[in-house]
Design a protein around this nucleic acid. Structure first.
Lengths: 212, 212
DNA sequence: TAAAAAACCCCACAGATGTGCGGTTTACTA
DNA sequence: TAGTAAACCGCACATCTGTGGGGTTTTTTA
């Protein structure tokens, strides 16, 4: 018997999920909540194996809810429910401790399968979302030898790195034994190549692309 | 019609896969190779959408083969085939550019499904493997997330994020419906909290710590 | 309930930045 | 050998940034 808890503000969806779970043998809905706060206050007395958590919730967000729930019960299996599939949310939810990710349009049979999967130590998620995870994973993990790397010359990367270390133009010039105007020139070219118009944007893009 | 290439040294498995693919409508095996070298030499004239690549190959390993193949055709969808499911191999294959991962005992129907999935931009892999990926992902990425996160208020994070998107003070003010001086004030506090003295340094530190 | 934290607002100004021009030298390669 | 790319250098100028002050109001928390 897998004990499931639900955190979802939409009453129709919440009751639909509860009915589905309670109506299936081997599954039991041990609690359903409309917000994170009430869920967390009951978490300790709840014998839940798997939690279905909406991301877009009133009050505390699902992401923060995951963090807090994992702190209380580190082994809890939390599956995120969402309508969106954007990279940033996937990233945050997984970092917060979600073990899987489901879009709301997932058919009932697939949803029950996913709950069992999570219960068994798997990480159910749509194939497209898995790809997004891998993309971020590669972006950050692999010192990838992509085209992003060849975009900037080694000198430009030196300048950009120095910039991200908090040096101003004069300090960069001193460190690289070149003039301030050359630094300015390099930065101009960096902006052109990265299609940005400020230090912050350039640094952000470069780090996220793994260039520096 | 999905064009598939196979790289697998075991002749029985290789021919079995080719037969399966050619015997299914909508799929076509456009090439099968017993090693990476011969596969790579034909890659440019091969109109393959998806490649099934064995990891344990004589000569060049499947991992290196993936790297080289992705350099030639960055958009190629490569699925790894293997008998093992150990963390390290998963990690390396994904970093090298594999978009998915299949154990060799995968039933034919599931295998065809996985090929289609990869073709459609997904990342087919077993649920257990997905969990391993997420575990590594969290281990490395989400590490500093937690404690560093509480350092900045949500408003400050909004400001910093906007900054990393390339907005200047006035633009941030407009977007957040506050005055430029308030933006300036938030940034001042961000600098104090992060111990930095420029936008670039703040953005670099925040991204690397996973704050934004 | 009082203190702390967050978010808001204002002023002034030196110094840094972004962008527009103009160049040279060196190394590689077609 | 001509052409290209990278790295180098210079000037002018409007605008933006960083830092020093001075505040208020609301929310959270001890």
């Amino acid at each position: 018997m897998i004990n499931v808890a639900i955190v979802e503000d939409n009453v129709t969806i919440r009751e639909g999920l509860a009915a589905l779970i309670n109506g299936t043998s081997g599954y039991s809905c041990v609690g359903s909540f409309s917000d994170c706060e009430s869920f967390l206050s009951k978490l300790n007395v709840l014998s839940s194996d798997v939690v279905l958590m909406d991301i877009g919730l009133p009050g505390m967000s699902g992401i923060d809810g995951i963090s807090k729930a994992k702190k209380m019960k580190p082994d809890l299996n939390i599956l995120m429910l969402t309508v969106y599939e954007d990279n940033q949310t996937v990233f945050k939810a997984l970092c917060a401790g979600a073990c899987g990710y489901l879009v709301k349009k997932t058919p009932p049979a697939r949803l029950l399968e996913a709950i069992k999967d999570a219960y068994d130590g798997g990480a159910p998620m749509s194939s497209l979302i898995a790809r997004q995870v891998i993309d971020i994973f590669k972006q950050t993990q692999g010192k990838h030898n992509e085209e992003a790397d060849i975009e900037l010359s080694s000198r430009e990367k030196e300048v950009l790195t120095s910039l991200s270390d908090g040096n101003n133009y004069q300090e960069i010039a001193d460190r690289l034994y070149i003039s301030v105007d050359t630094v300015r020139h390099h930065i101009k070219n960096i902006y052109r190549k990265l299609h940005v118009h400020s230090q912050s944007e350039a640094v952000a893009k470069a780090i996220r692309k793994g260039i520096i």
